[in-house]
């Protein structure tokens, strides 16, 4: 592709496309990322939504989009994208619409539907080489219903269905690896707190065709338990601690776009959120903290800078 138009922070858009007035929680890290993503993708888009927090972006008669939107259900947003994409292609082929009426088809779904009931629809959309972009805002739980654990919940996190002293006993599902294993056109992790990295990746995704995947870690003040103003701070910490590696898969290769040379201890990240408070109070749980740290260390040990 051509050289990025986002060389430095100052190149980021200062007029924003997504309309105000969306009823998302104050400090929503998912909305933060979607704003930045929308700025790059632009208004010639149709968002196909799976049930989740972002379903409430459009509540009749209000929509924050300049372009279009279709709400489907929790499990089948990629199939909705298939129907819209195919129909647009048919209309283009029959010359019922002109090419400038064409839209980019974008799935918008949370981590719960993405890693759970929507996974087979996603996998199959890749099989069919569907030309679409899939955006997953990952707040690591079923946030819209009050943060029950999903298969994207990190180990040891407290959720409203993992309230025991060790938190969630499972491990965060590696969606990046699952998607990449399908060999789609593009997969990338992003975070709203790193808008330049995000903008470049969305720019790359937009320049390609075929199935393209973006997963955005989305700090969630209500679900994770922190003051809304900490959203960006926590997002940055997720990257600095190495908990959220920023990377992309392209042409069969995975590369890291930000490699924290000196990683901040995960403890600094865990301490910012009430969902990990039980690791420190009333008694420090070194075993679990060490386990989390060593998982992160093991991940980065395999990465050459």
């Amino acid at each position: 592709m051509n050289e990025t138009q986002f060389k430095r922070m100052k190149d980021l858009p200062t007029t924003h496309l997504l309309g105000t007035g969306a009823p998302m929680c104050a400090g929503c890290g998912g909305l933060q990322a979607i704003n930045d993503i929308y700025d790059v993708l632009g208004e010639k888009t149709v968002f196909i939504n799976a049930a989740g927090c972002m379903t409430l972006l459009s509540i009749y008669p209000f929509t924050p989009f300049r372009g279009s939107w279709l709400y489907t259900a929790m499990a089948s947003a990629p199939a909705g994208a298939q129907g819209v994409r195919d129909a647009l292609d048919i209309l283009l082929a029959k010359k019922k619409i002109t090419p400038d009426e064409n839209l980019t088809t974008v799935v918008l779904a949370g981590d719960g539907s993405t890693s759970g009931m929507g996974l087979s629809a996603t996998s199959a959309a890749i099989d069919r080489n569907l030309d679409f972009i899939y955006i997953c805002y990952d707040n690591e739980g079923y946030g819209n219903t009050g943060q029950q654990y999903s298969s994207a919940t990190p180990h040891a996190a407290r959720t409203s269905t993992s309230t025991g002293s060790a938190g969630f006993s499972g491990f965060k599902k590696d969606l990046f690896a699952i998607w990449a294993a399908h060999k789609p056109t593009y997969v990338a992790t992003v975070i709203g707190a790193e808008p330049l990295d995000l903008a470049r990746k969305i720019e790359t995704a937009a320049s390609l065709t075929g199935p393209r995947f973006i997963i955005s870690l989305s700090p969630c003040p209500t679900g994770w338990g922190f003051d809304p103003q900490e959203t960006t701070y926590i997002g940055k910490l997720a990257v600095k601690t190495g908990i959220w590696p920023l990377k992309e898969y392209k042409d069969g290769k995975v590369s890291h776009t930000k490699n924290p040379h000196v990683r901040v201890p995960v403890e600094d990240y865990l301490l910012t959120q009430a969902r990990f408070k039980h690791l420190f109070e009333p008694k420090r749980n070194d075993k679990l903290i060490d386990e989390i740290q060593s998982k992160v260390d093991a991940y980065w040990a395999g990465i050459t800078p």
């Binding site: 379903t55 409430l56 279009s68 279709l70 709400y71 400038d100 839209l103």
Partner: peptide, 12 residues
Amino acid sequence: FSASSPASQAVA
């Protein structure tokens, strides 16, 4: 669904 006339369908 077309670029010149945005529509949000099946909204909540």
